[in-house]
Amino acid sequence: MTAIADALREAAALVAGADPALAAIVALSLQVSLAAVGVATAVALPLGALLAVGRFPGRRALVVLVNAFMGLPPVVVGLLVYLLLSRAGPLGELGLLFTPGAMVIAQTLLVLPIVAALCRQAVEDAWREYEEQLRSLGASGARAALTLVWDIRFSLVTAVLAGLGRALSEVGAVIIVGGNIEGVTRVMTTAIALETSKGDLALALALGFILIALVTLFNAAAQLVKEAAERRYG
């Protein structure tokens, strides 16, 4: 028990003292995951909306695929991106392996299906409600999809948050393509894995607390925005 208590005390001191190494790790985590969520969202929202509203051959297969990919194992995505970016791989020329850029790519691939699948579901539910009215007004296809996405924008915050939670908390992909290099590609989750295996539980715990606190903070902020918007717009 004392080991845990000691670790907790040390962790609190690290957080309170705003340890620079710790701060750098947290900052990189946020940069990588927010970038990945940004890129993934920009692609996933139109894709999800199109899957919801569009009627084209292969749509159902694509829906199943996107849903299935919500559960992509991060290590497998990491491995695939590693193969793509490695010196001998098709994108090896870019020299991205073991850089934050590689980590953004891997996390984007993990987040994209989550946001797309949740967006598809939300837009499909809205489409059921709006379809006749929108068709009566002459909106169809891409126009209708855009209208729906904008109209349920506050509900889609939840989909984006689910993606962000995934990006911030996964370790398998970033450790493979980033390499967990101190000061370059070390993020919260890879540091936790490393420090735990080294026996430095204090740093691992401190990072763990920060990680959970950040995710909670993002969700709380989003919830507040959503509630305010619902009061305002109905």
């Binding site: 709006y130 002459g138 209208t147 109209d151 349920i152």
Partner: peptide, 17 residues
């Protein structure tokens, strides 16, 4: 002909704007 018609439904569907 649809452009010259409009329809009002039992339950109005209005956008969040």
């Amino acid at each position: 002909a649809r452009r010259h018609q409009a329809m009002v439904f039992q339950r109005p569907v209005l956008l969040r704007r």
